[in-house]
């Protein structure tokens, strides 16, 4: 097995996720895309960990998983509140921070 395969898969996943983040018109889908990006990162960690026989990679992956879980929890709550307040979950409508 080669490292490349994992890296390529990971890159693909990351780009797909990023594309989702940029283009989706629903906040939940944006969140899901972010999860995809995190998954890509995790894949990278695990792959490099295995490649270099270093347990730190796995540890970091676990760490990211936990963070991701929390992030989704908070993120969904925010989305819910935004929806309640603006009656919309389209990220394009959320421009109150406009300079």
């Amino acid at each position: 097995m080669y490292l490349n395969q994992f890296l390529l898969l990971s890159a693909f996943l990351f780009c797909a996720g990023f594309y989702g983040v940029l283009t989706r018109k629903h906040s939940v889908l944006v969140l899901m895309s972010i999860e995809l990006m995190l998954a890509a990162v995790n894949l990278n960690f695990v792959a490099f960990g295995a490649f270099r026989a270093d347990v730190v990679g796995q540890v970091f992956a676990l760490f990211v998983l936990t963070i991701a879980a929390a992030e989704v929890g908070v993120g969904l709550a925010i989305v819910l509140l935004i929806y309640r307040n603006l009656k919309s979950s389209n990220p394009d409508d959320l421009d109150t921070l406009k300079g």
């Binding site: 990023f18 983040v21 283009t23 944006v30 990220p91 394009d92 406009k98």
Partner: peptide
């Protein structure tokens, strides 16, 4: 430069990219 700040999430993401 303020015009850069559109307030849109996805534009920010694009900028980051």
């Amino acid at each position: 430069t303020r015009n850069v700040q559109t307030g849109r999430l996805q534009e920010y993401a694009l900028l980051i990219l």
